[in-house]
Design a protein around this nucleic acid. Structure first.
Lengths: 159, 159
DNA sequence: TCATACTAGTACGATATCGAACAAACAAGT
DNA sequence: ACTTGTTTGTTCGATATCGTACTAGTATGA
């Protein structure tokens, strides 16, 4: 494993490309968010769905803080998101038996249904998009994105 | 040009991977945004910089609406972003001589300086990140991202 | 057991985001 | 000119986001 020694010697075009990539990522995020939110009823937004999806896929009974870390948002933001979900009975929270300060978050039956419906309702969009964009290309991209994410993640912790 | 006929036959694991990719993109956006905003003074945020960068790189004298389209945000959001920039004299607006309804946006001298400083101040971060993540990998990823963006973009227009 | 430091979650205030509705100017056809 | 429909940008109100400060509970060590 050879460390690059010229790490500090990025030139202007390298930096521009890096900015471009992040700009592109921002716009994709924005576009997908808008598209997705058009398919959600009840004025729920992408963060709400993201939480439900996480709970459904990776298991519930987790702390709010662990969710905030998973999505890299401040915990105050997550408090707000969870309160919206709880108000609609898509999740419920119980005291953490192992930690008197904390809560555990559980997805409810209607939460699962809501999540499943959201995914189902997105099916036609994905099909239509798949006729123009070959999603298998994401297979090659995803590992790079994950590595970039992990690097940024580690870097953040060191600050 | 052969249209895929099985576009509607995505299975669950395909869909999961698509969701994963968008989730990853969202988190990268979030992380880069936070990191970047820590380097900006004056409580300016990423959207402010993004506008300045766009004007500096691709030229100013453009309409607010064209900026909103470029970043895929609602024009009301851009009104707000521009007002923040104008209040700090980083941009200025003049009436559009060709269209009595519109404005044109220009970047000021201090706007350029601000943008240059922001990029410079990010240099050390990029260098340190480059020692852990090989940014040349973005060269392979960027075209795919651009294609995905273009597809989403076209799709949105059809709605 | 106590003091200190730390952690989970919330309250609050400031700003950001965005949809809906609007006014003003344009465009096209009549 | 005049009507109709469209486009630019703003205002307004509702919600989202997030930094700061706080409370309550936990962990550690003397």
């Amino acid at each position: 494993m050879v460390k690059r020694q010229d790490a500090a010697s990025e030139n202007a075009s390298d930096i521009r490309q890096i900015f471009d990539a992040f700009t592109e990522i921002g716009i994709i995020h924005q576009l997908s968010r808008t598209l997705f939110e058009q398919r959600l009823d009840d004025s729920l937004l992408l963060p709400h769905f993201t939480v439900l999806n996480h709970l459904a896929r990776l298991g519930d009974g987790v702390t709010p803080l662990s969710l905030a870390v998973a999505f890299q948002v401040p915990k105050t933001t997550l408090t707000h998101t969870l309160s919206g979900l709880e108000k609609r009975a898509l999740i419920e929270t119980r005291p953490n038996p192992h930690d008197g300060r904390g809560k555990l978050v559980f997805i409810t039956k209607s939460g699962r249904e809501f999540r499943d419906n959201a995914i189902t309702s997105l099916g036609p969009d994905i099909s239509r998009l798949a006729s123009e964009f070959d999603f298998t290309k994401l297979e090659a991209v995803l590992p790079v994105l994950k590595e970039l994410r992990a690097t940024l993640d580690r870097y953040r912790d060191k600050n």
